[in-house]
Every structure is written in structure tokens, then in C-alpha cells.
Simulated assay, not measured.
Amino acid sequence: MPTPTKTAWWSRSRGLPADAHASWLASMRESPGRTPRILAWAGEGERLAIGSPAVLSTGGVAGWQHVGWHEIERGGWNDELRRLSWVRLDGRRGEVELAEPGRLPELFRERVEATIVVRQFVPLAGERGVTISARRPLDGGGPLLWHTSLTRGLSWQTAGVQEAVDDALAATRSEFDMR
């Protein structure tokens, strides 16, 4: 009978409890193309967060939610609240409370920034305008995701704003020739 071996600190699970690691791996395998490699993790029980090369995973043994780094518009770590929070490109919000965040906030910043291929501000009315960005999935698949975000003081309901944003987006896309 083989002797069980201890898992080294540099192993694939990087110290994540075995049941959480197994459930996370199973969840990641449901979406082909995702690399099930842990870069950083934090939390305990059902309040876990795992950063892998292409996605941020939150949850625990009972279930996981995955969001691609390229889908996160903004977010970060709030040390006072002990919370990692984010806003996705589609406006949905997410957060996870972590008593000891470890390296996860740093990884969060690095991975989100790594997805940005283009970020350009286009003024529409003085200091107000639109930020146009193109994001790439870090799993190596899929097209660029183009996104527009208005600054404060501008509204999509204001006459002419949608047309101006559409024109600015078209010009930016043609300038970078990334369709």
C-alpha cells in the first residue's frame, strides 16, 4: 500500500482546503478553456475567493461563481471594510468579505489591468465625456469586448449623447483597427 504524501506549499491547491479545491476544480471544468491554476486565494468556508489566470471565483463547496477578469470594469480592496468589491461591465456588482486577503487585492488589480488593450477618454462636453475601452479575455479566447462609460454629468437620455458616443466608439475602433 502506497504511503500518503503531504502536499507541499507550492502544490496546485496552494493550501486551499481539499474539499474547496475539489469543488472549485469541478466548477472550473464546466467551462472549457479555463486554466484551473490558483494564483492566489483567501477566505474560509463559503466566503472564499480564488484568483486564477483568467477568472475570479467566489463561493465555496456549495457552489462557485466565476467572473472573467476582462468583465470587471472597476473595483478593489477596501481595507477598512475588509471587502473586495467590483462592478462588471454590464453594471452587476459583486463582493466578498475576507478577514485576511493575502495577495488577492494585488492580483485583482494586476489581472484586471492586464485585460485592457485600449482605454481612451473622448471629451463630449467640456470636461465631460466617454471612456472607451477594449478588453481581452485572459484565457486567450474570444474577441475583444468594447465598452463605453460616461463620466458624471452625462446621461444616455440626453439628446445627442448616444450618437456622439457611437461616433467616438467607431472612430476609436477604426484607429486601433481591432474589430
Rank of each mutant, 00 (worst) to 15 (best):
P2N: 02
K6L: 14
K6M: 09
K6N: 06
K6R: 14
G15P: 05
G15S: 11
L16E: 04
L16T: 05
P17S: 11
A18R: 13
A18W: 03
H21K: 05
H21R: 14
A22Q: 15
W24E: 07
W24D: 05
M28H: 01
R29N: 15
R29F: 01
E30Y: 01
S31Q: 15
P32G: 13
P32A: 15
G33F: 06
P36T: 07
R37W: 01
I38F: 05
I38C: 01
A40M: 02
A42D: 10
E46N: 13
E46L: 07
L48M: 15
A49D: 09
I50D: 10
I50E: 02
I50P: 04
I50H: 04
A54G: 14
L56D: 00
L56I: 12
T58A: 08
G59N: 09
V61P: 12
A62M: 08
V67P: 00
V67Q: 14
G68L: 06
W69K: 07
E71W: 03
E71H: 10
E73H: 13
E73D: 11
W77Q: 10
N78V: 06
D79K: 14
E80F: 02
R82P: 02
R83A: 11
L84R: 08
W86E: 10
W86Q: 03
V87N: 03
D90T: 02
G91L: 12
G91H: 09
G91E: 12
R92W: 02
R92Y: 00
G94H: 09
G94W: 07
E100T: 12
E100I: 05
R109P: 00
E110H: 07
R111A: 09
T115R: 09
I116P: 01
F121G: 03
F121W: 04
L124F: 11
L124I: 05
E127I: 05
T131I: 13
S133Y: 00
S133R: 14
R136F: 00
R136S: 15
R136D: 06
P137K: 07
P137A: 15
G140Y: 07
G141Y: 11
G141E: 15
P143C: 02
P143K: 10
S149C: 11
L150T: 06
T158I: 04
T158N: 07
A164K: 13
V165D: 03
L169H: 07
A171T: 14
A171N: 06
S174G: 00
S174W: 01
S174C: 02
D177N: 15
